[in-house]
Nucleic acid binder design. Structure first.
Lengths: 341, 341
DNA sequence: CTGTTAGCGCCTTCAC
DNA sequence: GTGAAGGCGCTAACAG
């Protein structure tokens, strides 16, 4: 009893065969209305529930898909995941979420775990880890398991991706600072082996150059996306002989750290120094001194990633096309960068 | 090729039978060292990987466990999940994370989804939804699927729980405000059908009474754990004839909203009004005006929840005991409540 | 339309 | 120690 009913039980009850029950349950056309109705009714009566494990074994599909992110406790990744869920749940998929915490061993471990879970696909944002070892990815490809990158991608042939135009996001942000009259703009970067950070750097640089400002490499510092790291790095910037009058940060968290340091020194924002972050984390809006930031429409990103996955599954790899979707970021101008001249 | 090797392939290769291969792979004692070694070697050579789906079908265990939370984009729940992962990954489990977004239909839907995924257990923090319908829970119990509540529990017999002492957390926080000289302390509450909020309310009330202050029910307002809700509610409080001189909030987010409103009115924190939040979200520490809050050691909570689950699984329900772990919260005193008299 | 048969990959008695 | 056989629950040919 108690939910362990199988199609055989139903078959026995009705003096028919399990295959017929299966057909009735699956809306197979070759089945009489009468029997279908009968089966459906008894199934309900007996509290029948399909055993997905058996189905998975049979079909080779688990209807589980894995999502790997650096961490889940940022609004950005949480929203992406929500977007993925919204798209995939209605199709009967489950989402297994794994975190890498930017550690290579966890990244590899997660992939293997998901493989064990027999996932039908993996959607991931690669970690900060140096993962030169593409082995895990190759393993996926060899097994024909769809792999799709979002946000933090890697160029691997055969792998689709959904990203935003980081170059544009950075360019717009920097341009905005220039328009507000800032002349010496620093950039808090991050590991530029990751394309997102490389492109933000390039966008920043281009905006500087395009607008006739002096590009000073010493104003670009790589740091980590943590509040205290941002603070530390800003200390260095402010101690320079010619300190910057604005900072474009590739992360909201480092931007926050920067603000802390600047305020501690009694400098005013945005009057003395302008600040822009990246990702539009909720706190940027909530701060008393709200922070200008670049929105990446993460929910949208998640939805599209899921759609790309569904396309690949439905194409059954017949068409082995890479698809690269690039979303457009939006600058959210707030107090930290708005000088009312 | 390509990872589709089965034990039959290995068996054929070695001219033995699949049963033997299985035994070798599973360290069954009745097997000669020689054959085991041989099997292990060829398995490695052929890139054999166990098909967990088949195993799951056979054993009835999926090694998936479901975690249901209201949302993942708060540090609190994210940390709990991390704790759970740390405990469960080494044991070979996967964690499927679901969010209810405090909607009843999603809560029920999630449970069913996890049931479909054949999870070996569900660890959950119930949503704000009124879920009077205990049906879904009963379904789990009937199926003998371990269910464990953390943080937001419901009293259901046979179900273990891991929570913190919300009463104490609230009591300590309120007591601290009193010690700092605040006399008229308001409480931003939340749906008190949820035990955590009920207990925080009771702890607050008791501290007021124990310390000879006047308990004024009109200073207690139920609101939602959102920044703008906190702001809205604080407006009401400050507009009262006898406004409060301190606010103990059952959520860090509402506390943040309260601070926004207070500052907009030109009142000073903590001089004019003291504020305490609940959960010790990272931003409470990062704000320029850091917020006093109650830490709930979420990672620990996650670990213990996982441990309780493992115990239940290992006991195989022989001992059908409920276990109720209650952790002790810790008050983190920061600027928002510290008056240097 | 429905029954029969077989197999997904694995493990576990039962013999030998 | 190892082989043979059966079954976990389901679906998909192949008959009829």
């Amino acid at each position: 009893m108690s939910g362990k009913t199988t199609i055989y039980d139903i078959a026995k009850e009705l003096n028919i065969t399990a295959a017929t029950v299966s057909r009735a349950l699956n809306n197979n056309p070759k089945i009489s209305k009468a029997t279908r109705k009968l089966v459906l009714e008894t199934a309900a009566k007996m509290n029948y529930e399909q055993n997905k494990l058996a189905l998975a074994l049979k079909s080779g599909k688990s209807y589980n898909i894995g999502v790997i992110v650096p961490r889940i406790d940022s609004n950005f990744f949480a929203s992406i995941i929500r977007g993925i869920e919204e798209e995939l749940y209605p199709k009967g998929y489950h989402v297994i979420i794994c975190q890498t915490h930017d550690q290579e061993d966890l990244e590899i471990g997660n992939i293997n775990s998901l493989l064990n879970a027999q996932v039908d696909g993996i959607l991931m944002s690669i970690s900060n880890a140096k993962l030169e070892d593409n082995q895990s990815f190759q393993k996926l490809l060899k097994k024909n398991i769809p792999l799709i990158f979002f946000d933090r991608k890697k160029d691997i042939k055969g792998v689709s991706s959904v990203t935003i135009d980081d170059f544009k996001g950075a360019y717009d942000a920097t341009k905005h600072l220039i328009d507000q009259g800032y002349k010496r703009i620093a950039h808090l970067s991050n590991d530029r082996l990751l394309l997102i950070f490389k492109n933000r750097y390039l966008g920043y640089k281009q905006a500087i150059i395009d607008n006739g400002l002096e590009f000073d490499e010493s104003l670009v510092i790589e740091t980590q996306s943590k509040v205290h790291e941002g603070k530390k790095t800003t200390k260095i910037l402010l101690d320079m002989e010619r300190p910057p009058d604005a900072i474009f940060s590739s992360s909201d968290f480092t931007a926050l750290g920067a603000i802390q340091e600047i305020k501690e020194r009694g400098l005013r924002i945005p009057e003395d120094i302008g600040i822009i972050g990246f990702s539009n984390e909720p706190f940027t809006k909530f701060m008393e001194l709200s922070i200008t930031s670049v929105d990446q429409s993460p929910t949208e990103m998640g939805r599209i990633t899921a759609q790309v996955f569904l396309e690949e599954v439905n194409n059954g790899k017949k068409i082995k096309s890479e698809k690269h979707v690039v979303l457009s970021p939006e600058l959210m101008v707030r107090k930290s960068s708005r000088r009312e001249n």
